[in-house]
Amino acid sequence: MSLNILVVDDSAVMRKIIKKALTDSKYSDATISEAGDGQEGLEEFDPKQTDLILADWNMPNLNGLEFIKKVREIKASKKVVIIMVTTEGSAGKMEEAMDNGVDNYITKPFTSIQLEQKIDRYFSS
């Protein structure tokens, strides 16, 4: 299954790390687009094509949580899975994210295997 994945993180280094992890995983054939903040993320998000969003929380202009709220307001033709990839690892922050449309959560630092396993929960078949 070839996924369309949108990576939203204000760190270009982190986007490179995530893209390399995906390229080295079973999702190596994914089409990956990227954005440097939530506002750019909204511009890159394609409600007809995007299968998965990997989004940071703390970003300039439009932070990850506000970005996700706006994505969930957009009528998409298919279920978009959103996984937050962030340093915000407290139980309270995770709960806040889940309450606002996040499907799953991975805290930085993370391994490539941990990222792949999170995605597997939705797209492994």
Binding site: S11, A12, V13, T87, G89, T107, P109
Partner: peptide, 21 residues
């Protein structure tokens, strides 16, 4: 260069985030 500065920022971000947790 830009990548090194970005990496320093991200490492700092992760250390702060971990201590915060």
């Amino acid at each position: 260069d830009g990548d090194v500065k970005d990496a320093v920022g991200e490492i700092s971000n992760m250390i702060a985030g971990g201590v915060k947790v």
